[in-house]
């Protein structure tokens, strides 16, 4: 089972992350303080560390340094409210594989965790298989029954995002932020998400004969396993 260590002092956030991630097949270990984290980091063979930088009794960056010194195999994702370019660079330079600014969507965290695990662990997980669809995240290709789907880059990213968060409702806001980044905020992106989603559905429907993507009332989408 894929084990994660989530280091976050805010209990409510920690619980939310665990509640979202565990049904996705992860085992989540948690630490609420710097000291707890130090005790926990050697206990399991973690696939991924989710590290908050602001801990009441220490700096999350020190944990990352320690993990790097110990040559820990898991990928590292920083979750922090510090959002300047310099903060991000510092986090990545210290050894983090990804940097997620708070507040974030759980679906986004899930996607980042999967991506980091794919990049840092063995190759067995390099291909994603969903309802017979073989997805290569590196090559950005999706093949169904030997036939490649002709998807644009953004349609591919949307599909990946939905599959990564399969069986979950993903809001259009989360999708927009995932695809275009937070600079999309303030623009009228509903139409853009809708257009891409429509095209993606059409292309999938032609190949599969069914509509895989459910529209959840309002403005969310969900892709379900059979």
């Amino acid at each position: 089972m894929i084990t994660l260590l989530i280091i976050e002092d805010e209990k409510s956030l920690l619980e939310s992350m665990v509640s979202y991630l565990e049904p996705g097949g992860y085992r989540c270990m948690t630490a609420g303080t710097f000291h707890d984290a130090l005790k926990m980091i050697d206990r399991y063979d973690y696939y991924c560390f989710v590290v908050d930088l602001n801990l009441p009794d220490g700096d999350g960056l020190k944990i990352i340094k320690l993990l790097k010194e110990n040559q820990a195999k898991g990928g590292i994702i920083v979750i922090s409210a510090r959002d300047t370019l310099n903060d991000r660079i510092l986090g990545l330079q210290t050894g983090a594989d990804d940097y997620l600014v708070k507040p974030f969507d759980l679906s986004e965290l899930n996607a980042r965790i999967q991506s980091v695990i794919r990049r840092t662990r063995y190759t067995g997980l390099n291909h994603l298989i969903f309802r017979g669809l073989v997805i290569d995240p590196e090559e950005k290709t999706a093949v169904l029954n030997g036939e490649q789907l002709d998807l644009t880059r953004k349609e591919f990213e949307m599909l990946m995002y939905l599959i990564t968060n399969k069986n979950r409702v993903i809001t259009k806001d989360a999708i927009a932020e995932h695809i275009w980044g937070d600079s999309i905020y303030g623009t009228d992106y509903t139409e853009m998400v809708y257009t891409h989603m429509k095209n993606l559905r059409k292309k999938l429907q032609i190949k599969t004969g069914t509509d895989w993507i459910q529209t959840v009332y309002g403005s969310g989408y969900r892709i379900a396993e059979e």
Binding site: E10, L13, S16, M17, P103
Partner: peptide
């Protein structure tokens, strides 16, 4: 952050 995460979970 809590509101956002909880509402996502609720969904």
């Amino acid at each position: 952050a809590v509101i956002r995460l909880k509402s996502e979970l609720l969904m």
